[in-house]
Amino acid sequence: MDDRFKRGFLAGIVSGILANVIDLLMGSMGLTTLRFVDWTGIVVLAHVPPYTFAETIFTFISQIFFTAVIGVVFVYLLPLIKSKNLFLKSWFFSLLIWFTVDGITTLYKVEGTSPIPLKTGITNVISSTIFGLAMAQCLHMFEQEKATSPVMPQPAMKPLDPPKDEEDKLP
């Protein structure tokens, strides 16, 4: 996939869906008191949970859009930080986003976001880690796809070996 924006957007969507599904599962098991969709709902809807089914769907879609934006930002940062150790850098970036969002909501005392119990903090780190690693995997797969695309033209013949000495050079 040649378009950097599209790679980041799709990687953010895919990894965001995966991370949010895991986060919702952990929420249903009682492992967290504040799911990612709840954070988004507090910001987008300006009120604390519980949410109606329609509000939950809307905030889920909003959350996925947010993760798509994160994917785009990350893919545009890659030329500056290089893509070597992509998984480590993507994981670090995802934790930086989580810490920043958590810090801002704590700093501004956003109702419904603090205080949070330890189990919620741990599940947020786990979900953010899943997001970062999945985003790196998606970007890696998109790069592999770009490199081996059957649409890309391939040379018709093997390149000629370079001349060994002056006599072998063509005029």
Score class of each variant (00 low, 15 high):
residue 145 E to T: 12
residue 119 K to N: 12
residue 109 K to I: 09
residue 17 I to V: 15
residue 125 V to Y: 04
residue 98 W to C: 05
residue 85 N to C: 11
residue 95 L to N: 10
residue 92 F to A: 15
residue 15 S to Y: 01
residue 88 L to Y: 00
residue 100 T to P: 03
residue 44 V to P: 01
residue 117 P to R: 12
residue 23 D to N: 14
residue 118 L to D: 05
residue 19 A to L: 04
residue 15 S to E: 02
residue 72 V to T: 03
residue 17 I to S: 05
residue 55 E to D: 15
residue 124 N to I: 10
residue 1 M to E: 14
residue 147 A to I: 10
residue 133 L to W: 00
residue 126 I to G: 07
residue 153 P to R: 08
residue 97 I to G: 02
residue 145 E to W: 12
residue 166 E to I: 13
residue 20 N to Q: 11
residue 41 G to Q: 03
residue 130 I to V: 15
residue 160 L to C: 02
residue 145 E to H: 13
residue 144 Q to H: 08
residue 29 M to S: 07
residue 18 L to F: 13
residue 74 F to V: 03
residue 101 V to H: 05
residue 126 I to N: 05
residue 41 G to R: 04
residue 6 K to R: 05
residue 112 G to N: 05
residue 83 S to F: 07
residue 105 T to I: 10
residue 135 M to N: 11
residue 127 S to Q: 03
residue 154 Q to A: 11
residue 168 D to Y: 08
residue 164 K to P: 00
residue 39 W to G: 11
residue 101 V to P: 03
residue 58 F to S: 15
residue 111 E to M: 06
residue 81 I to K: 04
residue 49 P to V: 09
residue 21 V to W: 11
residue 59 T to I: 05
residue 123 T to R: 01
residue 37 V to L: 10
residue 124 N to V: 06
residue 95 L to Q: 12
residue 109 K to H: 13
residue 137 Q to F: 06
residue 156 A to Y: 15
residue 56 T to N: 08
residue 130 I to G: 02
residue 125 V to I: 14
residue 23 D to P: 03
residue 92 F to G: 14
residue 138 C to Q: 14
residue 133 L to Q: 03
residue 114 S to P: 02
residue 33 T to W: 12
residue 23 D to V: 05
residue 120 T to A: 09
residue 82 K to V: 11
residue 17 I to K: 04
residue 72 V to F: 02
residue 91 W to A: 11
residue 44 V to S: 08
residue 91 W to D: 05
residue 45 L to C: 10
residue 102 D to M: 09
residue 78 L to D: 02
residue 79 P to H: 00
residue 138 C to R: 03
residue 66 F to S: 14
residue 126 I to W: 01
residue 47 H to C: 07
residue 22 I to W: 13
residue 134 A to W: 02
residue 81 I to R: 02
residue 88 L to P: 01
residue 129 T to R: 02
residue 55 E to G: 07
residue 46 A to L: 10
residue 70 I to Y: 01
residue 56 T to Y: 09
residue 106 T to F: 07
residue 87 F to P: 06
residue 150 P to Y: 11
residue 17 I to Y: 04
residue 129 T to D: 07
residue 152 M to L: 13
residue 117 P to F: 10
residue 133 L to K: 05
residue 76 Y to D: 09
residue 5 F to S: 10
residue 122 I to M: 06
residue 42 I to L: 03
residue 134 A to E: 03
residue 58 F to P: 00
residue 21 V to D: 00
residue 94 S to Q: 00
residue 145 E to P: 02
residue 111 E to W: 00
residue 143 E to H: 06
residue 110 V to C: 04
residue 77 L to N: 04
residue 166 E to T: 11
residue 111 E to R: 14
residue 114 S to G: 14
residue 80 L to D: 06
residue 116 I to T: 12
residue 156 A to Q: 13
residue 18 L to S: 06
residue 33 T to G: 12
residue 148 T to L: 09
residue 9 F to R: 01
residue 146 K to R: 12
residue 163 P to Y: 11
residue 73 V to G: 06
residue 138 C to S: 13
residue 163 P to R: 01
residue 152 M to R: 06
residue 138 C to N: 12
residue 39 W to V: 15
residue 38 D to Y: 09
residue 132 G to P: 04
residue 25 L to A: 14
residue 88 L to W: 00
residue 60 F to H: 06
residue 84 K to T: 14
residue 29 M to T: 09
residue 100 T to K: 00
residue 132 G to R: 00
residue 150 P to L: 12
residue 68 A to K: 01
residue 16 G to M: 07
residue 109 K to L: 08
residue 144 Q to V: 09
residue 148 T to Q: 12
